[in-house]
């Protein structure tokens, strides 16, 4: 494997976004890119990351290799990379370590780290292709704000999506709160758009602890997409350049 990223920033932010949810995981490398799928310890949430080969310049991977990595350790190594550094990830065929090289843009500094790999026996889940009943795109910062505000009211949020908009409702001991985002297009700045497509109304409840955790990915993308169908896990997607993505799946709360 040899994969070079123009800016370490992307990889730093991806790892930062998932490291509190999953601790040990395989980065599955093949000729299509670097993928990761892992559940949290309590099997409530699942993270699915894809960094396509096109995200890297260049990308070369001659055979499928899983790189079993302790994300806490990886975070320590990535601290040494500045956001604007060129990052190269390298590995041998049957590796004991993954090699990370950080180069300053002005090329007067090269840092090289070897991170020990671990054998991780990870369950892979089949994520079915789902035609979601409702899809809502919104500014990622707005979603983060809503989740953190409502977490002060309640542990759970009910998300309801209709043609009029998407509503987040929390009921707690101190009272209730709700936030509605109406569909709208901002002609000056499409990053501010709220876009809803709906085949049938949905209403589901989720743990805000997990949703606020997913929001650690906010810096990766201006917009976030929520995909909902009744009685299936919510998908929260941060789309990245070159068809790469960071997706989180969250099992709904089960009715009263």
């Amino acid at each position: 494997l040899e994969a070079r990223l123009e800016a370490a920033d992307l990889f730093k932010k991806v790892v930062e976004a998932i490291k509190d949810l999953v601790q040990h995981c395989n980065f599955d490398c093949n000729d299509s890119g670097i993928a990761l799928q892992a559940m949290d310890n309590s099997h409530v949430a699942l993270v699915s990351m894809m960094l396509t080969a096109d995200t890297f310049t260049p990308f070369r991977c001659d055979r499928n290799i899983p790189l079993g990595i302790d994300l806490t350790s990886l975070t320590k190594v990535l601290r040494a990379a500045q956001s604007s550094d060129i990052l190269t990830i390298k590995s041998e065929d049957a590796p004991d370590v993954v090699n990370l090289v950080f180069e300053g843009k002005d090329q007067d500094r090269i840092s090289e780290y070897d991170l020990k790999l671990m054998d991780i026996d990870q369950e892979h889940l089949g994520i079915p292709d789902t035609e979601y009943a409702a899809t809502a795109s919104m500014p990622a910062a707005d979603f983060k704000r809503i989740c953190s505000d409502l977490l002060l009211i309640s542990e759970a949020v009910s998300i309801e999506c209709t043609k009029e908009g998407i509503t987040f409702k929390a009921e707690g001991d101190i009272g209730n709160g709700s936030v509605t985002l109406r569909q709208h297009s901002d002609l000056e700045n499409s990053d501010k758009n709220v876009d809803i497509s709906l085949t049938e109304p949905v209403a589901l409840s989720f743990s805000l602890k997990y949703l606020t955790g997913f929001c650690k990915a906010t810096g990766l993308s201006n917009q976030v997409r929520l995909c909902l169908s009744n009685d299936v896990p919510l998908m929260v997607e941060y789309a990245l350049a070159n068809n790469s993505y960071l997706r989180f799946y969250l099992a709904p709360k089960i009715g009263d």
Partner: peptide, 14 residues
Amino acid sequence: GAGQGSITSFFAKK
């Protein structure tokens, strides 16, 4: 009260 569902009850193990 409401319980928390598990992701493995929706997505099958490969």
